[in-house]
Amino acid sequence: MTTTYAALLRGINVGGAKKVPMAELRTLMEGLGYGDVRTYLQSGNAVFSSAAGDEESLAEELSAAVAGHFGFEVGVLVRDHAYLRAVREACPFPAAELEGRQLHVTYFSHPVDAERFASVESADFLPEEFRLGDRVLYLYAPDGLGRSKLAEALGKPRLVKDVLATSRNWNTVVKLEELTGA
């Protein structure tokens, strides 16, 4: 059975660092035997199908291939359509009423518990808010991620140690769910 996945590459094509041309990424992924490879934007989003492997093994395989081809390490998360749909449906914020730049999802490599973020005083950052979900953190930042003090606090190394984390704005979250369902 073939499954459609989204690959989320962390920290590529940001500020001129870790350049990964999307055409090259598609070719690399096709060379790994993945089918229906498509990329979305330049920020490390790819959709593909595979009959072999699971999310973790596919992420490891793609990460190793990127390192071998481009010469630098890149964290990769792979998630299937059912998971992406569940993340979209479980959003605790009124996504339909917000601009895509106001709502973000940080995907984690494994579950994190609320204890990890207990030191973040939510009231200090209002109207910004966050909620945890299944291997995700939802962030409402009305002025956008670039101006978010809460995002800065949540990204402190001690809070995200031992976990691969990569964020996407809501528009990308929706688009990846749609692309993996097509």
Rank of each mutant, 00 (worst) to 15 (best):
A59D: 04
N169F: 08
A86S: 13
A141C: 10
C91P: 02
L145R: 09
Y34F: 15
G155C: 12
E128H: 02
G33N: 11
P21W: 11
L145S: 10
R135S: 13
F117A: 02
A118N: 06
E97S: 15
L145E: 04
R26P: 01
Y138L: 03
V112W: 00
R131D: 06
A59V: 00
L8E: 07
V136I: 01
L179Y: 09
G16V: 06
P94L: 15
V14M: 11
L132Q: 05
G33D: 06
G53E: 08
H110K: 15
A114F: 02
A95Y: 12
L41K: 05
L139I: 11
A90Y: 12
S109I: 01
A65M: 07
V14S: 03
Y40R: 06
A86P: 04
V160R: 14
Y138Q: 11
G144M: 05
D54M: 08
F70R: 08
R38E: 15
L139Q: 02
D124S: 14
G53P: 03
G53V: 05
L77N: 01
E115M: 08
L25R: 04
A96K: 15
K156F: 04
L62D: 03
R168I: 03
E89C: 01
T172N: 07
A46G: 12
L84Q: 02
P21V: 14
Y140F: 15
Y83C: 03
D54P: 14
A95D: 05
F117M: 03
A114I: 09
L32P: 07
L58A: 09
L84D: 00
E55Y: 01
D162A: 06
R10P: 07
T180I: 10
G11L: 09
G11Q: 12
P21R: 15
G11F: 10
A17F: 05
E177H: 09
L58I: 08
Y34K: 06
L154S: 02
A65H: 04
G71D: 10
